[in-house]
């Protein structure tokens, strides 16, 4: 993937990049004002006995309103698990996962389902769209399911940003991979959720399509103040975010504000050296 294109609308707005404060190796959470999503002592253990795997080992992290955060770390470090736990897709072993002050760990399946439907947007690496529905129907799906009328203005803005034009009535098979992921992002955004989680949304895309998807997310954060948490292992992708949180072995091992691809890469190399 090339470095973010510096075009007027799609490029990450790094104009406010000053001398980025690099609060490196802060294990404690930086007190973000107005945390929309937060994990407190979050732990997740898979299996028992010999097959026991500690995927998350006491994670404390918070994501502020309107912030676009990238989560990075080596494979198996617990990135997806963290996302799943925060999105109410997976159960937690101990600790708390909070969204808008509500504790996910005390909710039953129906409550979690409703929370996902009404307050969380989700973008997976692949297979995000229901094949029998058109692109537009896929975008409004969570609201349709809830029997809720979409916010017209927001929907119009999001749909416009997808840039699909007259292909909105097409089925997913008739769209390219990049278009499909943009539709998925639009679906995640259209219901006006508190937070959008994306797990390697560009992992299956070529760099050009990837850039379009990332630009789309960046604009959402800038223009409608959408809180976004995105897992990625690609420094260039991470550079679109306002902030990068580094995970290793189920723990938060560092943070970087106003990242650029180079700085992220350099930081990751440091972790690698230390790890080996």
């Amino acid at each position: 993937m090339p470095p973010p294109a510096r075009s007027a609308t799609l490029a990450p707005d790094h104009s406010r990049d000053g001398n980025g404060v690099d609060d490196e190796m802060t294990a404690t959470v930086r007190a973000a004002p107005e945390a929309v999503v937060s994990a407190v002592g979050l732990a997740k253990v898979y299996g028992q006995g010999e097959t026991r795997v500690t995927a998350l080992d006491g994670v404390d992290v918070a994501f502020g309103r309107g912030q676009f955060t990238a989560i990075m770390g080596p494979s198996g470090s617990g990135k997806s698990t963290l996302l799943h736990c925060l999105a109410g897709l997976d159960t937690v072993t101990s600790g708390r996962a909070l969204i808008g002050g509500a504790d996910l760990t005390s909710m039953d399946d129906d409550q979690l389902t409703r929370l996902r439907r009404d307050h969380i947007g989700f973008v997976f690496q692949a297979f995000n769209l229901v094949p029998t529905l058109t692109a537009l129907e896929n975008i409004t799906l969570p609201m349709d399911v809830a029997g809720r009328q979409p916010d017209r203005e927001l929907l119009a803005a999001v749909v416009d940003a997808v840039g699909l034009g007259d292909r909105l009535g097409h089925r997913p098979v008739e769209l390219s991979g990049g278009q499909q992921q943009r539709v998925a992002c639009a679906r995640a955004l259209a219901s006006g959720p508190r937070v959008v989680f994306a797990d390697e949304p560009t992992g299956n895309l070529d760099s050009r399509s990837g850039a379009e998807v990332l630009g789309f997310l960046r604009r959402a954060a800038d223009e409608i103040g959408q809180t976004i948490v995105m897992v990625t292992h690609d420094p260039t992708a991470a550079a679109y975010a306002d902030r990068v949180v580094f995970l290793a072995d189920g723990r938060v091992v560092g943070e970087l504000g106003r990242p650029t691809a180079d700085r992220v890469l350099e930081r990751m190399k440091r972790f690698d050296r230390r790890g080996s």
């Binding site: 999105a87 897709l89 399946d109 129906d110 389902t113 409703r114 996902r116 439907r117 009404d118 989700f122 997976f124 297979f127 995000n128 769209l129 229901v130 094949p131 799906l141 969570p142 399911v145 809830a146 679906r187």
Partner: peptide, 16 residues
């Protein structure tokens, strides 16, 4: 299976 998982993730309840 995958599609059903997706629908559930997006917020379709079991009853729906």
């Amino acid at each position: 299976t995958r599609e059903i998982g997706l629908l559930r993730a997006v917020g379709l309840t079991r009853g729906q």
